[in-house]
């Protein structure tokens, strides 16, 4: 019975092959080198993680002990008071700038992704990205001359917000563009194939699918608007009292740090206020970034679920 079947027998030559990472051969060295690279490279993350942790630690330590609820609700007069005026100013500036760049950016991005000829789209994206890389201080200078001097508005929330919106625009523009591009072409073909007009597709199908990503763009622009200083230094002016009109200058969180960061020690309260402002900025920006990541992850999962 057993004579008719063959038990597995392996080629004798192959027995000599060593498949393990032992010994001192060339292959062993290569494998060990790879292993050590894999162990050492992650140490580079110290460079990334250390600044964040150190920053959080020190800023929190300088900000939190003196921080009370009244810090957020009282305006600053001279060298006493809190951050109310600055928070209000940042809200106005970032909110207004977001309204401006949101409208322009979403329409621009939508057009680029859905209607523009490939050449127009390529150039629109190129210019969008170039604008995103333009030094903020240069935009600030331009805003100063164009909006503060030439229009005669003086330093004001309006001038600051418009200048800021120029800086924020590319992010909304770019994410909207990408959001529409990332809508699976099958969805588009399906709806157009069912006889929908392009506009119907865009607003009934494309926009809802793309919306989460557009939202991430808006949040990122908001984070940038809240955290940016350079475009505002010469345009938004400086007024400690809470602003009541768009033609007034205002204080704002980043400007507060910028103004008081090198105050002498006898004005310790202002330095503490700077740290508190930095802490608030940190929380806002990190919070917005986390929200963006969550939305992004959900969006990807949803798209996967739709088309897997």
């Amino acid at each position: 019975m057993s004579g008719s079947v063959n038990r597995p027998a392996f080629a004798p030559a192959s027995v000599a092959d060593d498949l393990s990472a032992r010994g001192f051969g060339r292959a062993t060295r290569r494998i060990l080198f790879d292993k050590w690279i894999g162990r050492l490279l992650p140490l580079l993350f110290i460079v990334v993680v250390f600044p964040i942790l150190d920053m959080i630690w020190w800023i929190a330590q300088n900000a939190l002990p003196t921080m009370t609820w009244s810090t957020l609700t009282t305006p600053l007069y001279g060298d006493v008071g809190g951050l109310y005026g600055a928070i209000l100013g940042t809200t106005y500036l970032a909110g207004l700038a977001l309204a401006i760049c949101g409208v322009l950016g979403i329409f621009g991005g939508m057009y680029t992704a859905e209607y523009a000829s490939p050449r127009t789209a390529t150039f629109a994206r190129l210019f969008g990205n170039i604008l995103a890389g333009t030094p903020a201080i240069v935009i600030g200078y331009t805003g100063y001359f164009l909006l503060v001097l030439y229009t005669g508005w003086g330093t004001s929330i309006a001038a600051g917000a418009i200048t800021l919106s120029v800086f924020m625009l590319p992010w909304v523009f770019r994410t909207t563009d990408l959001a529409f591009l990332s809508v699976p072409p099958t969805l588009r073909e399906a709806s157009l194939g069912l006889g929908a007009t392009h506009r119907q597709y865009l607003f009934r199908v494309g926009f809802p699918v793309a919306f989460p990503r557009i939202l991430t763009g808006i949040f990122i622009a908001l984070a940038i608007g809240v955290g940016e200083t350079a475009p505002l230094i010469f345009t938004a002016g400086w007024q400690l009292a809470p602003a009541t009109s768009l033609t007034q200058g205002t204080s704002y969180l980043t400007g507060l740090i910028w103004t008081y960061f090198d105050e002498p020690a006898n004005l310790g309260h202002l330095l503490a206020l700077s740290f508190q402002a930095a802490f608030i900025l940190f929380v806002i920006v990190i919070g917005l970034n986390v929200v963006v990541q969550i939305i992004g992850a959900r969006y990807r999962r949803r798209l996967k679920g739709l088309f897997a």
Partner: peptide, 19 residues
Amino acid sequence: VTDMLAGIPSVVYGIWGYV
């Protein structure tokens, strides 16, 4: 995490560096 580092306002880097 690395992306988040790019989002931190430059003025926060500044005060951390200076103080």
